[in-house]
Simulated scan of single mutants.
Amino acid sequence: MTDQTRVAASLRETARVVDAMAADPALCAAAAEAAGLVASSLRQGGRLLLCGNGGSAADAQHWAGELVGRFLRDRPGLAAIALTADGAILTALGNDYGYARVFARQIEALGRPGDVLFALSTSGRSANILAALEAARAGGLATVGFTGAEGGAMAPLCDLLLCVPSRATPRIQEGHEALGHIICGLIEDALSPP
């Protein structure tokens, strides 16, 4: 198989996953509901907290940047905090409490009832994401999970669960990125209509 053939095959697989997402009414409804949940929280002075590992950490920071800054148009900044972004906090918490608590401890410190947590884990099994969801639940935050396949251990900890229909990490991450952009657009439209 040539590199060009591999590129085409990967693009076809990505398109297949995205088509399956578009054809899933439950997934589309959950994404729309997640955007509404965040918009409602922000209207009431709440915040969106986001966390994930690796590529999912990058997605968390990306989406927070789209909301604090701008997505498609200029408008007032929106309160979104990526719990993945502060190296000093992450390393201090990892050292003092263990890596499984790096997000949960931040949620305990920063989260308030009425806030929303977006937790990203392609496997649905990341220990620090599960702990974050548990801390959010205990603190009165709404929980939205982004994962793949059936949702893994995080499924029962999420008020809303967005499962990309794939078991391949790159395809799941691509699905999450598409969902994140769509949700950012819906939030922006809800809070700053065109």
Rank of each mutant, 00 (worst) to 15 (best):
G148D: 03
Q61K: 02
A132R: 07
A32Y: 15
A8H: 15
R112L: 10
H181L: 04
W63E: 13
V18Y: 15
G36A: 06
H181R: 08
C51N: 10
T84A: 07
G46S: 12
A153K: 05
A39H: 00
M154P: 12
P194W: 08
V68Y: 11
L120C: 11
R12E: 13
A58F: 15
I182L: 09
G140I: 12
A32L: 13
V17R: 00
G69Y: 13
A82T: 04
L130C: 06
D115Y: 02
R16C: 07
G65I: 06
V144C: 01
A39E: 14
A58S: 11
A138L: 02
L162Q: 01
A131D: 12
G175K: 03
L37A: 11
T2R: 12
T143C: 03
Q173P: 00
A20S: 15
A57D: 07
S121P: 03
G111H: 09
A142H: 06
T84L: 06
I89Y: 13
I172D: 01
C51A: 08
L191G: 08
A32K: 14
A131G: 07
I107W: 06
L120D: 02
C158Y: 01
H62A: 08
A34V: 14
R16M: 10
F71V: 11
Q4E: 11
Q44W: 15
Q61N: 07
E177A: 12
G65K: 02
C28L: 12
F118R: 03
A80E: 00
L11S: 11
D24M: 04
A178R: 05
A22V: 11
L83Q: 02
G145T: 03
A132T: 04
Q61W: 10
I182K: 13
V116E: 01
I183E: 04
Y99F: 04
A153R: 15
V68S: 13
L110G: 14
G45D: 11
F103S: 12
